[in-house]
Design a protein around this nucleic acid. Structure first.
Lengths: 342, 342
DNA sequence: CTGTTAGCGCCTTCAT
DNA sequence: ATGAAGGCGCTAACAG
């Protein structure tokens, strides 16, 4: 075999290379490779073989230039570090990957300037749409309406009601958490939660209270706000036990607080869940699995949020979007801290 | 002002729109906007203003088509969920973002087929290079040499020595961990680590032993392999205390194991760090900060790994790559579990 | 069925 | 200093 037969310009093969090798015009080669029906089977075969031999990959840039669509979307996170962004990202990437759409990842690091910069860059690359992922469920400033491409907000809703946002339903999350505790026979339920600056904290309280009210009950004491840490969970449950020793369940605003609560309960000689049941939110595996006993938690279904955002964006790219805030349901994952599983 | 002056085709403005509005040819408009020096200052100003009025953004697709470079790279992770990928990703995204390079994110979910699919898709989009991020430090199959674009492997090195890989230095990590314990006056050091199927576990043992040998010491007992969980940390330290009650420090293979170890030590009535010092690896904030006392840990500098990979890829795209495995140093983050801080 | 022609939006010679 | 022309790789009209 002679060294380097054919073009072998060390550069990627182009459609005209394929056409030449197959002895047809570029137009025919294009039709053959794209399954257009106006090509003789034998010719098509020859073109396909030529493409294979040159390991031809159509240049998506050229294709996008012509088509007006690029098959790319921008995923703009405000905070990659935050553990909420990741599952959303995974869900979105998953939904898009199946649809031959490629995802540009941009991390604004919570900086509005950087975010603006990224938006411009993405528009320059002619993305077909944008998903904006927030790190908390409080409304965030809209990117605006004149971008020219559809935008879907995930986790953190846009403050413009005309925008489409996909969020987890924190009110419902609080509700189903309490319903689970009630189902476990608990009636003296206290609530320890995190930073009162977070909408999620208040939403969960709202849902929890509603569920209790349905049974003619109310929380033991007031909800205790603090921060989202284990340390706060330990401190708060200590105070709680002093003031309300009758408590038989502690609903915690996240898994870290719950973990701290469990640790202190055990140290105080109380049995979990026999004496006091404990549950958290987020279903963060590292917390739920390290806990003794394993921690019951509300899973916020964040991958679903990501997937739903991707699907919504698909819809918006194709047809007309229905502007709305869509709240997705959560689910209780039952483990040893609320129920004995045999 | 009349409604919708100019083209306003609701579609993005193009360079010829700008040229028309400025009353020049597209060639001149191009030169003006790209800072070419062959254009009168006044003309340039007019063009710039026109571009601004139309909020013109040059189409990077067209530009890339012409230039042969797209200013994009692919970031191929094997496992987004794994917490090691994220900081690497952040580091890389950060390094690229500054350089006007956009990043395609692809998650292969540990599946070779899916990975191959993503590689093809990325090459079709004419990325200028690829970073492959692994989820563990064991060598992984090379993507091969004939891709046409440079590839850098991060965290998990390629099994082809001709490839360029950036990894954390786990041997050194084991060494500096022990050196820290020695500096704290400990001499009877035991080692509890995770899954023996991981190269990282063995590398850290190697480093730890080397550091001890330098002082004429050796480990208390053999390293205990298990898995990377808190539960194993609790179990292993229980056994350890029974067999070697004289131990004055436990080096743990990761922060979860360390957390479990600390919990059991406390329950056994031993003081940390007075009686037994404990440290882990990874410096995972949720673990180090929940621990009582706060956990000393070796930070693997993963953001640096990501940044270094990005820089290496830059280099490879520009000039000649120097194939090699580059091991980056780690650092000990000292907290209460090994030392009293006043 | 196949080939020719015309662009998608931009940049770069090369004349003027 | 400016403009006309050619082409990056591809596809969608038309002809033949």
């Amino acid at each position: 075999m002679t060294p380097a037969p054919g073009p072998a310009r060390s550069h990627t093969a182009t459609l005209s290379d394929v056409a030449r090798l197959a002895g047809v015009s570029v137009a025919t080669a294009s039709k053959a490779l794209n399954g257009r029906s106006q090509v003789r089977a034998e010719t098509r075969q020859r073109v396909i073989e030529a493409a294979e031999r040159l390991s031809f990959r159509p240049n998506q840039l050229a294709r996008g230039l012509l088509a007006g669509r690029t098959g790319t979307v921008g995923l703009l996170t405000s905070d990659l570090e935050g553990r909420f962004s990741i599952p959303i990202l995974m869900g979105a990437e998953d939904a898009f990957g199946a649809g031959e759409v490629a995802v540009f990842l941009c991390d604004a690091r919570g900086d509005a300037i950087r975010e603006q910069h990224h938006v411009r860059a993405l528009l320059g690359r002619r993305v077909d749409g944008l998903i904006v992922v927030g790190s908390r469920t409080d409304p965030r400033p809209s990117l605006g309406r004149g971008l020219g491409v559809p935008v879907v907000y995930a986790y953190a809703p846009s403050d413009d009601p005309e925008d489409l946002s996909i969020v987890p339903d924190n009110v419902d999350a609080g509700r189903i958490a309490v319903e689970h505790l009630l189902a476990c026979g608990r009636t003296r339920i206290a609530h320890i939660t995190g930073d009162p600056g977070y909408a999620a904290a208040h939403d969960r309280v709202t849902g929890a209270r509603a569920a209790l009210a349905d049974d003619g009950l109310s929380l033991v004491g007031e909800p205790r706000f603090g921060d989202w840490s284990e340390g706060w969970g330990r401190a708060a449950v200590t105070l709680l036990l002093d003031q309300h020793p009758e408590v038989d369940a502690v609903l915690c605003g996240n898994d870290q607080i719950a973990r701290g609560a469990v640790d202190v309960l055990r140290e105080r000689g109380l049995r979990v869940p026999e004496d006091v049941a404990v549950m958290g939110f987020d279903n963060w595996q590292v917390m739920t699995s390290g806990c003794r006993p394993l921690l019951t938690s509300v899973d916020m279904n964040l991958e679903q949020v990501g997937r739903a955002a991707a699907k919504a964006l698909f819809g918006a790219i194709a047809g007309a979007p229905r502007p709305a805030v869509e709240a997705l349901p959560c689910r209780v994952v039952i483990r040893g801290s609320t129920a004995h599983l045999s």
